[in-house]
Design a protein around this nucleic acid. Structure first.
Lengths: 199, 199
DNA sequence: GCAGAAACTTGCATACTATGCAATGTTTAC
DNA sequence: GTAAACATTGCATAGTATGCAAGTTTCTGC
């Protein structure tokens, strides 16, 4: 019931290309990096490169964290604090989408050196935001539709920050991410209410 | 003290190109749109097009709203509700960067038809976020550094949503945007605190 | 006003990105 | 074992983007 040979090869090639892209980006700089260089490094033709990724950027950023919307029915009806539930939801998402710390660090290096990639990274992360908005809609009801999107983006940004911190800190485990997100969200909530008597 | 002839022409050409880009995008579809078509529509050479914009996307999205960081000293030391002050700050930014409702509507049409542009639009908006983060740092102090960025992004997203609503609703004035942003932020704050006893 | 500096437009050359198509080879399913 | 599905590749081609140099317009200081 494991993957077929074809599927395993495809996945492996996709990873090889990503590694090659990151390697070349760190070596030559992102702006100087050509698809030809990536293909050569990965041992494939440039044509094959485009069979796997639509462009260079996509090759460097991997797959986005995908939330298991189906398995998150509990979220809509939970009575817990929203910040905690959001954090739990995303913490679960991370466990379902294992990240390689070493690869992530390299990716972060490339992003740090190329601000233009930051946008693409956020865009990638915001794919998560979409499924989250659906879940929030279910929990908060239609009255809050306009705030739902803001909240979803806020939560995914918090997730991104937390993942970055985790990637850089060997002492952290994946389990430490959930409370970190929770704390971040709660702090933002507190700050937002600062000086506001209308709570 | 007015702009020189050169400056006025440059600005006008930049606007002409943007109009041309939007027109062509609506006519041919963004994916089918070529730089050559834009240049022809704008009455310039393709080479000149690239003297004004780095790429097609940039030609469609105009300049980002720029906050007047220098003139916002009041923000750091204000005692008012943070949500209100943020809204006021961004409302002021809008007045300093007058938007053309008709053009904005066309841009929104193009974006709606091309999800890929949504990311770029947000990226554009997030340029505002950077200056905002600086101001928030000054107000909240170094302890809150990690939440500052989240807050800045949240606020700029709220700004974007409010501007979209304004663009679509002729009955709204620019002055209506400030309280709208304020309300959105306050609601997000409330929702974040939902079920949280630790306030 | 006029001369020279600075800026703008353009064509041309060139490197790179990205896609379609067709040929060939590999894996899968029955 | 065979046919269908899928993967890799080369080739052709359209489009993106930049550097450079030549020609023109605008600006600056006198």
């Amino acid at each position: 019931m494991g993957m077929s040979l074809r599927q395993r090869r495809r996945l492996q090639t996709a990873r090889d290309i990503q590694m090659a892209a990151v390697t070349v980006a760190l070596r030559d700089g992102f702006d100087q990096m050509t698809t030809e260089a990536i293909a050569t490094e990965a041992g494939i033709s440039t044509r094959t490169f485009f069979n796997y990724y639509n462009n260079k950027q996509a090759a460097i950023l991997g797959e986005a964290v995908r939330l298991d919307v189906a398995g998150a029915g509990w979220f809509a009806s939970s009575e817990g604090a929203l910040t905690d539930d959001l954090a739990r939801l995303m913490g679960q998402g991370l466990k379902d989408n294992p990240l390689d710390r070493a690869v992530l660090r390299k990716i972060i290096s490339v992003i740090d050196a190329n601000p233009a990639l930051q946008d693409l990274f956020r865009t990638k992360v915001d794919e998560t935001s979409l499924s989250l908005a659906t879940l929030l809609d279910a929990r908060l009801g239609p009255d809050m539709a306009s705030e739902t999107r803001l909240l979803a983006e806020l939560a995914t940004h918090a997730l991104t920050e937390a993942v970055m911190i985790w990637a850089m800190d060997d002492a952290m485990t994946l389990d430490d991410i959930t409370p970190l997100i929770s704390a971040k969200l709660r702090n933002v909530g507190k700050i937002l209410m600062q000086g506001d008597a209308r709570v």
